[in-house]
Design a protein around this nucleic acid. Structure first.
Length: 842
RNA sequence: GGGCGUUUAGCUCAGUUGGUUAGAGCACCUGCCUUACAAGCAGGGGGUCAAAGGUUCGAGUCCCUUAACGCCCACCA
């Protein structure tokens, strides 16, 4: 027997280990059709947050559903080495231990990093287990595994040989704290308080005539090799071709005409620093200007900055301002708020930096994606569909991807150098004297291969052949540019296929006020705390059913609480069923000699199975949740169980109770694996385990339209009856006369009318209660008060208005002609009922 | 600057291909300890669906305009 209250801690204890040990999570049954999802590999940098819990719950729901539908399900787990993020954390830890990470040998440092990885991987495994995720651990991968590293090298080498990877000296985003290059996606623009510094660039040979140059970054002036004006800007025509004197440095630089200078912006004169600004770099190329790097990788000024060398770039900025002021070269300081790029990981202000890096040539790869998305049979189907636009737009405007990182934690670039020679290959060259490139690849370079590298590609493995392309990928919309896009072009390029058929996009989880969770706000919520308080089942159901796809969730603990209540309801309904089925055996199970109410619940059940299955297939779990909630609570618990109490010795009743409860548990199982497992195992008839049981299927045999309508109407009658009693404050002394020959047995039981039925009319206050089939008069000793009369008058007015509206509608020829016939009929019926009601009232 | 989204009950959100008195949970009001559940049961109140216009017999839903908020991309010397 079940306890009186649902106890999530007791229920969830030990179940995960059991499932895992029994091998229920394992893929590989060749008699079944394969179904694959690969987990978005979490970073080995910390704990999982609510976003992970949401993301993985959705995947587990899909996988459990498909498994119950009879597919050979592979849900492949794994983790991401997360290059820059992990390196930053490992470095921080070492520094706290008093060790300078950069003084270590690369191999020693890597040993520490692997220790870190093992520790955090364990945390993540523990959390996956708590959440109940049915991952196939036999297939687990890590992005730095030998197999995945081989895939990375293969892709690098092939792209290099195709000319789609090249090494070049370009302006890239430099993170001076992590001291590495970054891709554009890893730069976050934030509005910072800054200033526009207006400086005097004197004309050569003049101490009166100068150009007023405005900049937000005066410290870069040491790298200026020109100033530019717009060729159409009449104010400055006469200066084009002349030289100006670079302040503080006294170096002569030319005034060039370039479209880049916007006459409307600032003073219309812009200083050109080709080594520290992407636009200036382009200007430099057009005018053949020298590129002078003046900032060192750590963000300090280098020797090109003369006496300023060694100063941090921001200290240098202050010093330069001070000195310009002292020399009367500063005109004004104009405060301004402008967008400044910050490193996604270290938050350092990004320095546009001229440096030699490796790049992926994106145009041909992106074009392939755009072409493929036009074919509905081979494209990636986004759910919701609008997110396809995000990917396509990215593909349209994409620029070359900077993939080299000056880090240790990652896949070292498979390029070797010897004097001026370069060798790119899967393995190191055989002869001596070659030195491997010390850089590693962007983390996303390896994650981009995740859907196929995890299946053994580039080898032609059984797994790759069987489980690729993946059926579905689940991730948040914020990850589309970093990951989804890159998986898509790499998948197409290297496997000739989309990496996954569907891409289910969910939103972000925010706090109750709609703010992002962040460390600085201190509003973070540990999913493990929620599991502790309400159970994994409650958290999962809440996360999966709260939002429609692609939209954000505002975290609301009250809603998890209300899910807990729902589970408690399920628990108690199950408790009721089990109490009454104690000696029930398989030979007693029969769905025969069904009464109207049995047919009614079976019809409702089958309709629910149909609609729930449809929404499961469409990943619309919010709709699944709403339908199940309503069916379970309103139809099964509030109505059918109550009715069943009148007839509990009947094996048919017991069979129906068991049948419906079994189906309910199965449909809830993907959402609430623990509690459904607990209850299911206690049912008198059940398969080995609910998670490998067969998902309910719609069965026309158990659709009884007539009985459904009849009982719906009876329940409507009962409700109206109660309403009349409640509105008129009727105590128990009233009498009831039924006005026709329908079967009122159930109504009598539900309304407890056994001793109140009369056959004749009485000369006291009477109320009519009606539904389509049922009709009764309630007699009650009561004087009508003023209020009662007003109430009656209000109701009369309402009815008259409604009747008028309907008559009007039905008089409308266009409506009668064009609207579907059944609607017109319904309308007529409603009108008839209302007219009757009005007549009784009068 | 370009694009996407949101705006529905006090709060958080659903709302299918347009179908005619717009739903849920929580909160609120009334009455109930009715043997599965008071974390419950039976009822109830509450919304001119952001604003204006249009298409249509019919608009929360489709089209146009506007506003507020949010996000993405680009860019700001």
């Amino acid at each position: 027997m079940l306890d009186k209250k649902y106890n999530h801690k007791l229920v969830e204890q030990g179940k995960y280990e059991n499932w895992k040990n029994k091998g229920y999570f394992n893929s590989g049954d060749k008699d079944k059709i394969p179904y694959t999802i690969v987990i978005p590999p979490p970073n080995v940098t910390g704990k999982l947050h609510l976003g992970h819990a949401w993301d993985t719950t959705l995947q587990d729901i899909i996988i459990r559903f498909k498994r119950m539908q009879g597919f050979d399900c592979l849900w492949l787990p794994g983790m991401d080495h997360a290059g820059i993020a992990t390196q930053a954390k490992v470095d921080k830890k070492l520094r706290e231990e008093g060790i300078d990470p950069r003084s270590m040998k690369r191999e020693e440092w890597l040993k520490k990093a692997w220790e870190w990885k093992e520790e955090y991987a364990k945390n993540i495994h523990d959390q996956w287990a708590v959440l109940g995720l049915s991952l196939d651990y036999n297939k687990e991968r890590f992005t730095l595994d030998e197999g995945l590293s081989k895939a990375v090298r293969k892709v690098f080498v092939d792209l290099y040989n195709k000319g789609l990877i090249y090494q070049g000296e370009k302006i890239i985003n430099w993170d001076p704290v992590a001291m590495t290059a970054l891709s554009n996606e890893e730069v976050i623009f934030k509005e910072d308080e800054g200033a526009f510094y207006h400086m005097k660039y004197f004309l050569e040979g003049s101490d009166t005539e100068f150009l007023q140059v405005a900049t937000t970054r005066p410290e870069t002036l040491f790298g200026d090799t020109a100033v530019a004006v717009n060729p159409s800007d009449e104010r400055y025509q006469k200066y084009i071709g002349k030289n100006v004197v670079l302040p503080l440095v006294n170096r002569l630089i030319p005034v060039v005409a370039d479209m880049h200078a916007d006459p409307e912006f600032g003073t219309g004169v812009v200083k050109i620093t080709p080594a520290h600004d992407a636009n200036d770099y382009e200007v430099g190329l057009r005018h053949n200007l020298e590129k002078i790097v003046v900032i060192a990788p750590d963000g300090t000024m280098n020797d090109k900055a003369g006496s300023y060398a060694g100063l941090d770039r921001f200290e240098c900025r202050s010093k330069v301002i001070e000195d310009l002021k002292a020399k009367d070269l500063l005109i004004k300081i104009e405060p301004m708020v402008h967008n400044v790029g910050h490193s996604e990981r270290s938050d350092a202000v990004i320095e546009p930096y001229l440096s030699k890096q490796w790049f992926v040539k994106m145009r041909p790869l992106a074009d392939k994606v755009l072409e493929n998305q036009k074919n509905k049979d081979t494209k990636v189907n986004f759910v919701p569909a609008r997110y396809e636009k995000i990917m396509n737009h990215w593909m349209e405007i994409t620029y070359d991807w900077c993939i080299s990182r000056q880090l240790w934690w990652g896949h070292q670039i498979p390029a070797w150098y010897k004097d001026d020679e370069i060798y790119v290959g899967m393995e190191a060259p055989a002869c001596d004297g070659w030195v491997q490139d010390s850089d590693v690849l962007d983390t996303w370079f390896s994650s981009a291969l995740w859907p196929f590298s995890t299946l053994g590609w580039p080898d032609d493995t059984e797994d790759f052949k069987r489980y690729y392309p993946n059926n579905c990928l689940v991730t948040g919309y914020d990850i589309i540019p970093f990951w989804v896009n890159r998986m898509t072009f790499q998948g197409l390029e290297f496997t000739g296929q989309r990496p996954f058929k569907d891409c289910l996009i969910h939103g972000l989880i925010r706090d109750k006020m709609g703010r992002k969770f962040s460390k600085s706000l201190g509003n973070g919520i540990d999913p493990m705390d929620m599991v502790d308080a309400y159970g994994a089942d409650s958290l999962r159901y809440y996360l999966a059913t709260t939002a429609s796809n692609g939209t954000d969730i505002r975290f609301d603990e009250d809603k998890i609480k209300s899910t807990w209540n729902f589970i408690n309801k399920l628990w108690n309904a199950s408790r009721f069923v089990l109490m009454n089925l104690e000696d029930f055996k398989e030979d007693k199970y029969k769905l025969e000699n069904l009464k109207d109410e049995d047919k009614w619940i079976l019809t409702k059940l089958n309709k629910t199975i149909k609609v729930v299955t449809k929404y499961m297939e469409k990943y619309e779990f919010n709709n699944v949740g709403a339908n199940l909630y309503d069916f379970i609570w309103s139809d099964f618990c509030d109505k059918y169980i109550e009715i069943s109490k009148f007839n509990l010795n009947d094996d048919t009743k017991k069979s129906v109770l068991l049948h419906v409860l079994t189906a309910i548990l199965k449909m809830l199982h993907p959402f609430m694996p623990y509690v459904t497992d607990e209850i299911y195992n206690k049912l008198p008839i059940h398969e080995e385990n609910i998670m490998i049981s067969k998902y309910p299927e719609y069965n026309k045999k158990y659709i009884f339209a007539l009985e459904e309508k009849k009982i719906d109407d009876l329940l409507e009658f009962v409700k109206n009856f109660r309403n009349v009693c409640s509105e008129n404050n009727m105590t128990k002394d009233y009498q009831v006369k039924f006005e026709n020959k329908e079967d009122y047995t159930l109504a009598i039981r539900l309304l407890k009318l056994e001793d109140k039925i009369i056959d004749n009319s009485l000369e006291i206050t009477a109320y009519k209660v009606k539904s389509q089939f049922y009709e009764a008069t309630i007699y009650y000793e009561k004087v009508l008060t003023m209020e009662d009369k007003q109430e009656l008058a209000r109701e009369k007015e309402k009815l008259i208005a409604s009747i008028a509206r309907r008559k009007n509608l039905l008089a409308n020829e266009n409506y009668v002609k064009k609207a579907p016939a059944h609607l017109v009929e319904e309308e007529k019926e409603k009108l008839r009922l209302e007219e009757e009601k009005l007549a009784t009232l009068l």
